[in-house]
Every structure is written in structure tokens, then in C-alpha cells.
Design a protein around this nucleic acid. Structure first.
Lengths: 290, 290
DNA sequence: TGGCTTTGTTAAGTATTTCTTAACTAAAAT
DNA sequence: ATTTTAGTTAAGAAATACTTAACAAAGCCA
């Protein structure tokens, strides 16, 4: 029988801080405590768990592989605490607080601009902050409680304590430089794609490989319009949502080779801003109609 | 900017304890602390959140409605902490620990007895404990970290920090006393059903109402075989999974009027016993085949 | 009504935990 | 070799959380 195992929240914060900072000293100052406190706290955490969380590399300390579940736990608990704090603040000030939304570019400019605009005018007293960024950044931010809600591409692995509900499917088409003819997949490319690490990028690469194309990449950008521009300049081929290829641009549209799912992600098990539910409802109603 | 809001884990434990005990004193003794400590701790919690968590009813104190999100948060964090403790214990003892499974009766005796038996013989070194209980109890237990994994009827509301993945569908048929003829729904019954509060019961009641039957209930039991027995004795009609009506029993089988989903539920965002994943895999493979 | 018990709070002191400062070790940098 | 940087250890100070004890007030039982 392991008794409760009471780990101070503070020590979990320490762990997250050292994971997010290059050095323990900087982590300590970012927390506003002495390096000594940090050291002692983490030593104590290690002792309590009885698991080796840190290795030495020279005089630097790094997290062991086995520490990862603990780090995940720490992040989860920290995000939950943050949400509770927000909830409390909302409840006792009776002000509506604010909600922070993260969206993929297509979400903000293509699918849901009207929803966002109407929501703001319907609930002007709710503070509102929209961040547009790539899916991976959004997910990390959601996990850190930087956002209350995000719309992103469905990740292959959903992070712990995050829920994802489907919103819509997008198909991505091949975009070729002007004057290019259809040809066998082995002669496709070279490519201008989303950057390495982007989730859509890996979807595209997998699909290209399945079609027998060698994905030789000559340029990268997170911005679809930039990619389309490069294609029209003859720099290479792209794979983009059709709606994100500017109409006036001189390019050839090819076949659709990938579909990606846009999803709504939230933190699970946390008290929510009531406005978030309303917004989700509205986002989903858009895709029911379309 | 609300800064971190550091709430001691202990105070969350206090909150859960008073929610689960009739009186604060009994909660205090169950925690092994003085009533004074509990009182001070909860007063401090209330002060920190700035939200009124307790009302007075005579000399008794009761949770306010608004306290519920805090209670949910507390339960979530407590379950996560427990899981971390289990994980740590597994890691440093290198023993496989044990996994605690909860299942609905049909799961344990009808759909998955073979999976459970083979799993035990494949992994004899993993401690194994199976509890058979109604869905609502299983869900509450899962939330309290009494179980690592449960198989139950899909609840209408999934509790916070719990994930549910579908496993199979069961259809429930009307079971009539011997010699009863088919008749209009308004003349159905009276009924012997699962107890009030059971999730399957509410599914059944809803369906009966939709069919135009008045659900007059004359007997209740959690045990399907008991219900079937009562039907054969002419006490009333039942609605049961066909497979749970003993074959030798003298009853009439009617139409299927309800389907219920069996799901696997787990706590989200917690370090897991590796055996749990294996077991889930096997449970799902059974239903793929069947 | 008047005691008596039970429930919960408050006060004061004690114990525990967690911080800070300061002295120290060891790896990198100059 | 000297200095700088990263992290640890030691000792005392500060903050937290607990205990006991005294208290208030609601329910109980004549």
C-alpha cells in the first residue's frame, strides 16, 4: 500500500521549469527562488519518487528518459491548477474574464472568421485573444495553459490530458508551376512545403512516398500564400488546401492527395469558461452547415 | 495576471474527504488529523480561492453548488497523484505491480472471460484484481483511482479527466412471462428492471416511454439472472441482453428495443501500467473478431 | 427548561517544511 | 593558472501545517 504520496506542487513547478530552461540557474531565477532552493527541491522530489530523474553531463544536469512520465504529470497538474485559478477569478469578480483561442491560419482566416467576429460582438464583455500559429505550437501552448481552446490539425499522438473533437476535413491538392504537365509521380517535384516538424508536412511526406514520389524539398514556409507564390515563380511544387491558393495566381492545380482533419482541442477535466462552450457550439455549427 | 495559485495538495484531500464523509469530524479522523487541522485547512482553501465553498446548515457544513468544480479538480488531481505514485513504485521495484480492473457483469462473464483468463496466464507476475459492479459504481471507482481500467456502459456524461473508447454494442430484448402474447405497447408490463440510478435502467425507461409504454416497476435487481427468474415466475416483464437470459428458462423473447454501448474507460493523462495497454488491445481484438 | 453530547471554530504553542545566505566543489572558459 | 559558471551542501530564518486546549452553538434527552 503506497500511501498518498504527497508531492508539493512547488516541486512539480521546479521540474517543469528545468525542463523548459537551458540551465537550472535560469530556471531558478525565472521562478524567483534561489538556485539552492531549486536544487534541494528537485533532490527531494527525486528522493520521494525513488526514481532517478536527472543525469549529469559535465556540470550540466539533464532529464533522464524515465523522467518523462513525471514531467507529463507535472505539466498536467500545473495546467489544471492554472485553470482552477482562472475559474476562481471569474467566479468572484463576476467579470467574465477572458478566453484565449489558438487557431491554425486556415481556421482564423478561412473557415471561422465570421464566427469569431460575431462572437466578439455578441459578448463584448468577454476578453478575447486570438493567436494564429502552427498546430504543434498551439498544442504545446494548450498544454501549458496558454490557451483555453485551439483549432488545429489532428495530431497523430494526442498529448496527455487533452481532448480532441473533430471539426472538419480538408483536402490538400498538388499545386504545380504554370505550364507544368501532369506526369508520373516519380517525376514530381521538387517541393516547397511546410517546415519540418509541422504535422501537415509529415502527412504530406507520407502521402508522397505512398504515391512513389521522392520528396526533395527546396524551400519551406509556414505560410501557404508564400508557398503558392514560390510555386508560381517556378521554384517547385506544393501541396496546399485549395482554398489557400490565391485565385489570381498563375499555377496549375493537380490532384488531391492528402486529407487532414481539423479538430478542437481542450484540456480535459478542468473548470471551463462558459464562453468556451458557446464558442465551440458555434464552431461546430458552421461545419454542420458547410 | 493571477500568479500560480499554489494550493497545497493536502487541502484538496481535505475537500474530497468532507465531500465523501457525512461529517467533518469523521472526515478528519479518516485522514488521521485533528478536526482543527481540517477546519483550518478548509478555511484557508476557501480564503485562497476567494469563493464560498461551504454553507452552514445548523451546525453542519455542506458544500455549496459553486464548490463543485473545485471538488472535481480535487478528485482529478488526487487520482493523478495516485497514478504517479503507482508508476514510481513499479519503476523502482521493477516488479510489475498490479492492475485493477472493473467490469460490468456481462463483460466479465460473457464477452471477455477468455481474455481475462489468458491475460492472467500470460502475465502471471502482474498482480490482477477484477471487480464486477454496475457501471455507475465502476465510474466512481475509476475516478477515485480504485481502478486502472473499467469496462462499463457508456455514460451520458463522461466524468472529467476520464476517457471512453467504444468496445461493442449490445441490444436488449423484451423478456415476457411464459404464455404471454405480443400486445400493444400501452399494455406492456408491469416491469422488473435494473435499479433506479443504473444507467441501463435509464436507457430502458427512455425507450419504453418512446414506445408508449408506461414503465410501472414492481421489482428491481442488478442481477440479470434474478430479473429473468422473476419473469419466468410471472412477476413482470424485463428488458435484458439476450445472452443473459438463461436458455433453460421458460420465458418469451420479444423485440429488441434498446441498444447500449460498452466502452473502455481510463483516467486521462496519467502514467500507465504497460499491462493495461496490452489488455486493452486484447479486449478490442475480441470485438473486432466477434 | 436545563444539562449533556456532538460539531465545528479559534487561540497559542510546537513541529515540520521550505526557503535564504554563505561556503564549497567541479567543469568550462580565458 | 585564474576566473567564471553550474550546481551542491550546511545552517539558520521564515513560513506552514499540525497539535492540544478552550470555546460557542446546535441538537438531544430527560
Amino acid at each position: 500500500m503506497a500511501e498518498p504520496l504527497d508531492i508539493p506542487l512547488r516541486q512539480l513547478e521546479y521540474l517543469v521549469a528545468v525542463a523548459d530552461h537551458p540551465t537550472w540557474s535560469s530556471a531558478a531565477t525565472s521562478l524567483g527562488v534561489s538556485a539552492s532552493a531549486l536544487s534541494q527541491g528537485l533532490a527531494d522530489l527525486e528522493r520521494r519518487l525513488g526514481v532517478q530523474l536527472f543525469d549529469r553531463q559535465g556540470r550540466r544536469r539533464v532529464l533522464t528518459d524515465i523522467a518523462d512520465p513525471v514531467l507529463q504529470h507535472a505539466r498536467t497538474v500545473q495546467a489544471l491548477s492554472h485553470d482552477l485559478g482562472q475559474w476562481a477569478e471569474r467566479v468572484n469578480t463576476l467579470k467574465m474574464g477572458s478566453i484565449r483561442i489558438g487557431m491554425l491560419d486556415v481556421g482564423a482566416v478561412l473557415h471561422f472568421p465570421e464566427v469569431l467576429r460575431v462572437f466578439r460582438s455578441d459578448y463584448p464583455e468577454i476578453g478575447f485573444h486570438l493567436t494564429v500559429a502552427p498546430s504543434s505550437e498551439l498544442l504545446a501552448g494548450l498544454r501549458r495553459a496558454d490557451f483555453d481552446l485551439i483549432v488545429c490539425v489532428r495530431p497523430s499522438e494526442i498529448p496527455p490530458a487533452i481532448s480532441a473533437t473533430p471539426l472538419l476535413q480538408e483536402s490538400l491538392v498538388i499545386v504545380r508551376p504554370p505550364g507544368t504537365e501532369s506526369r508520373p509521380a516519380s517525376a514530381w517535384g521538387p517541393w516547397v512545403l511546410f517546415p519540418e516538424g509541422s504535422h501537415t508536412r509529415s502527412l504530406i511526406e507520407r502521402s508522397l512516398r505512398e504515391h512513389g514520389a521522392r520528396p526533395q524539398v527546396v524551400a519551406e514556409s509556414h505560410q501557404p500564400d508564400v508557398l503558392a507564390q514560390m510555386v508560381s515563380l517556378g521554384l517547385g511544387w506544393a501541396v496546399l488546401p485549395l482554398a489557400q491558393v490565391p485565385e489570381h495566381l498563375d499555377v496549375e492545380i493537380g490532384e488531391s492527395i492528402v486529407t487532414r482533419d481539423l479538430v478542437i482541442c481542450q484540456r480535459e477535466g478542468a473548470p471551463q469558461h462558459p464562453g468556451v462552450e458557446v464558442l465551440i457550439e458555434r464552431l461546430r455549427s458552421v461545419t454542420d452547415v458547410g
